[in-house]
Structures are given as structure tokens and as C-alpha cells.
Amino acid sequence: MPVDPSLVGREFPAPAPLTVTPERVSAFAAAVGHPGDAGSAVPPTFPIVLAFDAMQAFLDAEQIDLHRIVHGEQRFAYVRPLVPGDELTATLTVTGLRQIGGADIIATSSEIADATGAVVCTGRATLVHSAGGAA
């Protein structure tokens, strides 16, 4: 079933803030082999953890199965590097929706902010949703 076109412009916050702890950074850095001291070097793609929570909130609200989603594009623009101790929140906005060959191409933008409300990073993602059925 195609995704509801009235979604464009709607916001979906991540359900809970996330604290950038050395343990989380270290597990993430170890999984991808990122160099440096986990006490200070936060991998630049780490904010996906928050962006993913916001995306999951969006998928849950729309009853879209995660396994029917393929990540088409991701771009981050950083205001400042993340540092351990940051408490982050994320809000995803659906910015566009179109259909190509039976798939929904969902454009999103997620603002990631620190505890003061200042935006530290914006993530723009394209999600490709295959509605399935005959497959």
C-alpha cells in the first residue's frame, strides 16, 4: 500500500533523548573500526543512532515494516562535533514523497539538537519503501 501523501510536513520526534556516553561511542567505533580515543573521537555517522530512533517512530506511526525500507541516501551537515556527555534529541520531518515503479521514495530531514536546544547536526535521508505483495 502506498504511503499516505498527507505525511509531507509532519514531524516525528525520537521517543527519548540519547546521551553520548563513552560506552556507546566505543561500541559504535569498534563496530566500524573508527580510529581514535572513544573518550573524545565520536564517529561522524554516530548521530544516525538518534536519526534512526526518529525514523522508527515515523515507521511505527505509519505501520510501515522496517524490512521493506532501504536507505537510499544520507547526508549530514554538522554545526559542531559531538562530544561525550552531549544529550541529544531528534525530530524527523517528512519533506517529500513520490512514487517510482511501485516504490515510495520518502525524503526526510532530522534535526539533532543538544540539551540547550541548539542544533548540532542535520541529517537528510531518503528512504525507499517497497510495498511488496507479489514478491
Partner: peptide, 20 residues
């Protein structure tokens, strides 16, 4: 991100992205 960190010894990243 890892390659960039290795090339620059952990420089501050301002933009990072790609299409998959």
C-alpha cells in the same frame, strides 16, 4: 568517515554523505 579520520588524524567533519 573512518577513511577521512585516518587521512586527517581526526579532523572535524563538516559535511558527510552519499547515495547508496
Amino acid at each position: 568517515g573512518r577513511a577521512v579520520a585516518e587521512w586527517t588524524d581526526g579532523a572535524e567533519v563538516v559535511d558527510l554523505g552519499a547515495k547508496f
